[in-house]
């Protein structure tokens, strides 16, 4: 076995903080939506609004970090080995086939992850943030543009929330698809991934 450094300190802080904030946002959000009672409506609203602020601050710090360190390149989608990656989850995984891609510190996301996470980063998160802010500060017809109660923003925000939950379900499950069930979670915690030593080339990995 060998240890490969995958996740930096900031990435691990980012990931787990974001996880906590998103869990808080989801719980309070669905309470506000009327699905269950947990915190009480007023506290749910206050926590949801505060968590949104934390989420936005964390988002800005992360964007800054991604570009300063060049780590944003991890999220650039590629078709290289995309089919192999899909085929691995659909077939190979049941036959103990090796992972078609390998993780390194500069190449920590597989082609499928790149697409999904980029989707989150540029679709879901900004949409949730913008519709949320609109709904928080711009939802009355007194505003210059009457968005008729921002019906559309609300619908979008709710749909986004459902997609986030679906993402979390699959995302958590996918952590178990590493070399061992706990490999990926461990990497996210310690920053290091343990891999069996195999003579594999990393040259043809997506950039």
């Amino acid at each position: 076995m060998r240890k490969i450094k995958i996740f930096s300190r900031f990435e691990r802080f980012w990931h787990w903080s974001q996880m906590a904030v998103v869990v808080l946002l989801t719980l309070t959000g669905f309470e506000i939506h009327g699905n269950f009672a947990m915190f009480g409506f007023e506290q749910a609203v206050r926590l949801h609004n505060a968590a949104a602020i934390s989420f936005i601050i964390l988002g800005f710090i992360t964007i800054f970090w991604l570009f300063v360190t060049g780590q944003y390149q991890n999220f650039i989608p590629t078709r290289n080995k995309l089919k192999e990656q899909i085929s691995f989850y659909a077939k190979g995984i049941f036959h103990n086939a090796p992972h078609p891609t390998k993780k390194t510190e500069t190449n920590k996301l597989n082609p499928l992850q790149r697409i999904i996470y980029l989707g989150l980063l540029i679709l879901i998160f900004p949409v949730q943030t913008i519709t949320g802010l609109l709904y928080l500060y711009y939802h009355y017809p007194e505003n210059p543009i009457d968005a008729s109660g921002l019906w559309l923003a609300v619908i979008t925000h709710t749909l986004g929330a459902f997609l986030v939950v679906a993402f979390v379900v699959v995302h958590v499950y996918m952590t178990s698809t590493g070399h061992r069930i706990t490999t990926n979670v461990k990497a996210m915690i310690t920053g290091f991934e343990e891999e069996p030593i195999k003579k594999e080339s990393t040259e043809k990995q997506p950039v």
């Binding site: 802080f13 787990w16 903080s17 996880m19 906590a20 904030v21 808080l24 926590l47 505060a50 968590a51 602020i53 934390s54 964390l58």
Partner: peptide
């Protein structure tokens, strides 16, 4: 992360 949640 706990600090983030605590402050929130």
């Amino acid at each position: 992360p706990a600090l983030v949640i605590f402050l929130t």
